[in-house]
Nucleic acid binder design. Sequence first.
DNA 1: TCCGTACCGTACCGTTCGGTACGGTGTCAA
DNA 2: TTGACACCGTACCGAACGGTACGGTACGGA
Lengths: 227, 227
Amino acid sequence: MDHHDHSPFDGADTDGAPLDEAFTPRQEEVLEAALGLLVEGGERAITTAGLARAANCSKESLYKWFGDRDGVLAAMIAYQASKVRVAVGGPAAQRPADTYRADLEGFGIDLLAVLSGPASLALNRLAIGQASREGSRLGDLLVARGRRAVSSRAKGLLEAGKRAGHLRFEDTQGAFETLYGLIVRDMHVRLMLGEHVPATNTDRAMATHVAAAIDQFFRLYGADAQS
Amino acid sequence: MDHHDHSPFDGADTDGAPLDEAFTPRQEEVLEAALGLLVEGGERAITTAGLARAANCSKESLYKWFGDRDGVLAAMIAYQASKVRVAVGGPAAQRPADTYRADLEGFGIDLLAVLSGPASLALNRLAIGQASREGSRLGDLLVARGRRAVSSRAKGLLEAGKRAGHLRFEDTQGAFETLYGLIVRDMHVRLMLGEHVPATNTDRAMATHVAAAIDQFFRLYGADAQS
DNA sequence: TCCGTACCGTACCGTTCGGTACGGTGTCAA
DNA sequence: TTGACACCGTACCGAACGGTACGGTACGGA
């Protein structure tokens, strides 16, 4: 049920969670408009009539392209994820300790910036709202698409640090999850609840917070940390 | 529209959270039924007609007691929070190191158990879904009621540990947030997205994970940690 | 006994929304 | 010119929902 990588076009199958990429430019315009509506007004703001009006398209086209309203929501997540397709490679070369630390901090700041961005928050709220509904795979889709990119970039960074002798750990996944917890804490949930989180307000505040988190991370996983 | 707080007494909390309405037993029955609907079917499952049917009450009573549908949702959060009214005091006496560590682990396990519970997940999903809507204070309400209880218990525990010489830190809030991040990581979000999180499946898995997290916490904030 | 109160169950209304149908327009190819 | 195609805009339908009104019932106090 999870493996349908490249479908030539999204056909008339309306049952499962079908569609992957391969959106036409016109469809991407529509999805962009849908994202705008979502960011501004939440899920209830995405009505078929409202989206058609906002995107200057017909409802008939919506149903032709996306099957039904849920198909539009799924397509929005797939589309947004395809946009964020991160360059995962990163610096493979050996880097001195302070530069490597700056890489880690850069990762942390990027992570916080993404999580606190309005589009990300809106999509996460959408997926969480749909998660209670049975048979909705939006959550899985979001996790698979979004988290994977972050996770792979972080793990590459961590293993590079290990090879370079800056870090020491056995379980890459565990180290990544600890790093995530130290950086994000409960900010993501609080942001989604609409709370005002100071550490995500300005670049300066984010940098300060991330620096402290990376400090803690090095005390747990640094090469000179006592086991 | 917002000020109908005829709070008889019970003004224990000093912060801004306003409402302390005491619900009658009948109203609590209705709210319990509403929670059941919410847990099972998400926010869309709470319709005025459906709730009236499930709770064997009339729609007229719903509107009399709670004002409108949003009032029902707010009352659900207030009611659930009032149920969880935690015994915050905890052991004030000095405790030896290993017992104190067990206290911390107990806190962590309780925290994970609460966050992964179906009622908590459903309420958080509800509040997050409403957060996009302007003028909705459900998120604030949930944070104020739920988070505050956890936070105060944890801070009491941490400061007791500091006085007993088990911990060393300056910023209690910062230490608590680090502890929270080490324990919860991104599990809360993933649970709300409907994902299957192994570390919250069994008591054993939770205990193992929390023990590791407390290990890390002591390496950062233990009295014998290098600064 | 009578009346007020609180409540239940049902019927009802106006609106919104998902989904479908249809006519009209621009384009490209034969 | 003709026809096929993709699309837009609008009108329409049925269902669901929030909210209100009304009749009927139990109870407790004067």
